[in-house]
Design a protein around this nucleic acid. Structure first.
Length: 270
DNA sequence: CCCTGAACCTGACCGC
DNA sequence: TGCGGTCAGGTTCAGG
């Protein structure tokens, strides 16, 4: 489900309801996620939630004695539930607060994660190797161009690699490449500096726009406040195979690139 | 180091 | 109605 805008929308939706509150218990109904949920995570019991941060698509729940590192995978979502709302079949984890409200994690495919670390999360192996945040100044054309030299893999796979830049998933990779006029199969090492300039701007814009609109609505996405996102209607290419290009009316083409659906305009993207 | 494909898992949908 | 195949927003990992 979630790309960076959905994760950020989730963070903003849940944060005001839970920051500053004390955790009563963590209820784990299904521990078999991307990795097993570690027993050590129950150290959150009795601790006050200091902040909810985001790094890439990871959500970081900070406590005095450590951090819960959560990921929504392909199909995860989080929302605040009332104390008496019974969990559904795929509601695998509840963070129960002292006032009885619950942060409830639902994830049908179980590709998500709930982990615990006592070290600074930036030093955790999953976080330490991540590339820059796309919406910060650390992500710029010179950086991306420099990283791409000598690379033969496709530009699309390149920008979707979280070690290069975080937060560009399949939807927004398709969108950004269309906006920048770059063919998704083009070798990353053969894209000019000028085109990286356009691409970086496109990535920043498409992600910022999506966040401002509350995340993309795809199948069942709902934000932390339970409200759906409204960005889907503005998608330019993703999910629009065979439909007319919004620039030139040519039917959009769909191919598979690295096992992922890739939609583009064969005239506008070169 | 770089690149590709498999793996993790469930549910929705499509054609027969 | 049922069955098999395909596809879905992510990421790590193994192997070449």
């Amino acid at each position: 489900m979630p790309e960076l805008p959905e994760v950020e929308t989730t963070r903003r939706g849940i944060l005001p309801h839970i920051v500053g509150q004390r955790v009563k218990t963590l209820e784990v109904r299904q521990a078999k996620l991307r990795w097993p949920v570690p027993d050590s995570i129950h150290q959150v019991a009795g601790k006050k939630l200091l902040d909810v941060e985001r790094r890439g698509k990871y959500l970081l729940f900070r406590f005095r004695n450590g951090t819960v590192i959560a990921h929504l995978g392909m199909s995860g979502s989080m929302r605040i539930t009332a104390p008496d709302e019974p969990p559904g079949f795929h509601d695998h984890v509840d963070m129960v607060f002292s006032d009885g409200r619950r942060l409830r994690y639902c994830d049908p495919r179980r590709f998500g994660a709930w982990l615990w670390t006592e070290e600074e999360p930036a030093d955790h192996p999953l976080i330490a190797s991540l590339g820059p945040e796309p919406l910060t100044e650390a992500f710029h054309a010179t950086y991306l161009h420099g990283k791409s030299r000598g690379r033969k893999s496709s530009i699309k796979a390149f920008i979707m690699d979280s070690h290069i830049v975080v937060g560009v998933g399949n939807i927004y990779a398709n969108e950004a490449l269309f906006m920048a006029g770059i063919h998704p199969k083009r070798a990353a090492g053969k894209v000019s500096a000028a085109r990286y300039e356009k691409l970086v701007q496109a990535i920043k814009q498409v992600l910022a726009d999506a966040i401002n609109m509350g995340g993309t609505t795809l199948r069942d996405f709902v934000g932390g406040d339970g409200k759906p996102g409204y960005f889907q209607q503005t998608l330019r290419v993703y999910g629009r195979a065979n439909r007319p290009c919004r620039n030139c009316q040519t039917p959009l083409k769909e191919i598979r690139l690295g096992q992922r659906s890739t939609v583009f305009c064969k005239l506008c993207q070169t």
